[in-house]
Design a protein around this nucleic acid. Structure first.
Length: 426
RNA sequence: GGAGAGGUGGCAGAGUGGUCGAAUGCGCGCGACUGGAAAUCGCGUUAUCGGGGUUAAAUCUCGAUACGAGGGUUCGAAUCCCUCCCUCUCCGCCA
């Protein structure tokens, strides 16, 4: 949610941002017109309420003296009617403004490169050795299926397509990765761990920016009126909704494992095989609530924290700055991490780290204030995958596969997998 | 699911129709005292919206709103009525 004061003060800046995104600028003028009307109504209503308060007090005094106050009461009654009408009109205007504001995207940083789609993303660095094979490396779904550690057909029987099931060493590696990632983030990178709800209400998803525009991307539990979370960013960010945090406590660094649920509407035909694009996947998420002055520095830290997992697993990856067309609704700036998938001969996203500035904080009303005074302001929220577990597992299967079909277990993962060094056919 | 109790400021806790944005205590901030600290004393301590003011911001100033949320009664609601949400206690069921 943008600050309406910014739209009032500098509408051209907001319009420029929308033009950069190739979006319609008319909502800005609509808001300006409604805002003017809103302030008129407030002034009229407040004026009358002030009169009513004054007159009501007089009535009280008259009655105390035992005098008749019926004339005055009648006058105030009429004022009450007028106030009611004004407030009803004001409510409508407020709703109109809110509805427009709710669907205007965040204003991207000037550092975000132009571009229409992911082809314009800019690689900033590449890390790790790309493995050389003396055989033709297979995509992870073949590796996993051949080893009998991923079951792609039975999960479909249970649910629908785009669900998968891990078995044996695959299942073990799934939870090993979760524990490993959480341990690194909590023990080395300074995050506090949470285990949060996997379902969230509409306010929560509005607060983090998924609603109202992206409802079709979510699974919903109609009966309870709750949504399946698409990422732990949702609960870990919204948990501080309507709070005023101590400035001295910032930055707040949270991590947590959750399952993530995505309908993948509009992705029909894309990544239909394997673990890359499924309706349910595990993820360890990183969330930061920061002072507005250092959210960009904290984003750099967060990317390094996400990278540290790939480095320890010795998986080759690259870091991209995401361009305008690929940025999305909420962030002002975003980095992606992509691992190299030798079996598919392409880079695959395994983490996305975003600075959302005060956009979510405004929607969720998350503020901070110094104990030593100063004004209350919105925090900046950041989120990043640290990392997506299924895709990390896929990265291991592809990069650590051997000619005989076995997969070597990355060294750092072995303590989490009962010392297993190689995954053999089960 | 059944029965009951309750939701007031950062926390605890008064307040049952006007003088209550709200006593008191704790906490917190500033100051005094002290070599320093503790204790003590003094002062201060909600947020949002709108107007004025300001180059702008902060400070300031006037007004409005808010005592779980929404609606109602009333000239006037923290206080009375209705609906919803949440919390707690007991019983039942249950991983």
């Amino acid at each position: 949610m943008l600050d309406i004061k910014l739209i009032r003060k500098d509408p051209e800046k907001v319009k420029d941002s929308l033009r950069r995104r190739k979006a319609d600028v008319s909502p800005v003028d609509d808001i300006l017109a409604l805002d003017e009307k809103r302030r008129e109504l407030i002034q009229k209503s407040d004026e009358l309420k002030n009169q009513r308060n004054v007159e009501s007090k007089k009535i009280g005094e008259l009655k105390k003296k035992g005098e008749d106050a019926e004339d005055l009461a009648k006058k105030v009654r009429e004022m009450g009617e007028e106030i009611k009408n004004l407030d009803e009109e004001l409510k409508k205007v407020d709703v109109d403004i809110f509805n427009i504001l709710a669907v205007i995207p965040n204003i991207p940083s000037e550092k975000v490169p132009d571009g229409d789609d992911d082809s314009a993303n800019i690689e900033v660095r590449q890390e790790g050795e790309i493995p050389q094979f003396d055989f033709e490396p297979l995509p992870h779904w073949d590796v996993g299926e051949n080893l009998g550690i991923i079951d792609f057909t039975r999960a479909v029987k249970i649910a629908t397509s785009r669900f998968t099931m891990m078995k044996g060493a695959g299942s073990l590696m799934e939870r090993a990765l979760i524990s490993f990632m959480l341990d690194v983030q909590t023990q080395e990178n300074g995050y506090t761990e949470f285990f949060a709800p996997f379902l969230a209400n509409g306010n929560t998803l509005f607060g983090t920016g998924q609603l109202p525009r992206f409802e079709e991307d979510l699974f919903k539990c109609e009966k309870a009126g709750l949504y399946m979370i698409p990422t732990a960013e949702v609960p870990l960010t919204y948990m501080h909704a309507d709070e005023i945090l101590d400035a001295e406590d910032l930055p707040i660094n949270y991590t947590g494992f959750t399952a993530c649920f995505r309908s993948e509407a509009g992705a029909a035909g894309r990544d239909t095989r394997g673990l890359t694009r499924v309706h349910q996947f595990s993820k360890v998420e990183l969330v930061k609530l920061t002072h507005p002055d250092n959210s960009y520095d904290e984003l750099e830290n967060m990317v390094r924290d996400a990278e540290s997992i790939l480095k320890k697993l010795k998986i080759p990856y690259r870091v991209l700055v995401i361009c305008l067309g690929d940025l999305g609704f909420t962030p002002v700036f975003k980095y992606d991490l992509e691992y190299w998938a030798p079996g598919q001969k392409r880079w695959v996203e395994v983490s996305s780290c975003s600075n959302c500035s005060d956009f979510q904080a405004r929607r969720a009303n998350i503020r901070f204030k110094s104990r030593k005074g100063g004004k209350t302001d919105f925090v900046h929220t950041l989120n990043g995958s640290g990392l997506a577990v299924g895709r990390t597992l896929a990265a291991i299967l592809e990069n650590y596969q051997n000619a005989d079909g076995t997969v070597t277990v990355p060294e750092v993962l072995r303590p989490y997998m009962h010392g297993m060094e190689v995954i053999k056919k089960q």
